[in-house]
Amino acid sequence: MTFATLRLRHGLMAAAVAVALVAAGPAWAWYLDPVTPVAHEVRTLFFKALALTGGFFILAEVLVLVAVLRFRARPGVPPATFHENVRLEILWTAIPAITLVILAGPTFTTLKYMETVPKSDLTVEVIGHQWFWEYRYPEHGVVFANEPLVVPQGKIIAADVSSIDVVHSWFVADFGVKMDANPGRVNHTWFEVERTGTFRGQCAELCGVLHGDMHIEVRVVTPEEFDRWIEQKKRGA
């Protein structure tokens, strides 16, 4: 079997796998479903990065493949002897550099957007413990642990994240939110969930034996339902 037929086979196999993946549906999903403005922005930035760097990536892989297939040693065909070309070298230094400058723009604006906590409608304090999460609603005097966090849909939630023992990290992928919970300091982040539902996350910083069991569940409800829920919680406490 020659290299070329091998490559061809690989190509066909890859295509078959790709078709199978699309047909297989959500089990083979490759990007999450963003539900906050920040997560949307992050996905847009990712697609921009993919578009800007993808060309270089494909060019490099194709050139390597073509070189290997085309320039095999053959009797009577001597190898080329060139070994420098200043113009080419300047070009392949400058073009990627310019591309990165272009990419730095949206990176900066997205960063600014996600790190500026807007005026919030609700503050929750998120406190990591080995191995569960404690949530506090200081404006309502509600405190609980080991239960889902409940927040209203379409409202700006400010989260103050910290820890009681080791470093944890509060991470809900669909929100585009990940904030380390450090003992001895409070980190600030925010999110605004666009639709109701239950969203799952998990502690993202190794925090000991049961790090893998430190799940996060966020229940996003309508503002009316939230008001009812918080009143009930207050009475219960």
Partner: peptide, 24 residues
């Protein structure tokens, strides 16, 4: 991000090295 530039220089130079050679 800047690190990608010298890394890129290497990759292009390697490709140019094998380009036109007699590959075994």
């Amino acid at each position: 991000m800047v690190i990608a530039v010298p890394t890129g220089v290497k990759i292009w130079s390697w490709i140019a090295t094998i380009w036109g050679g007699s590959i075994r």
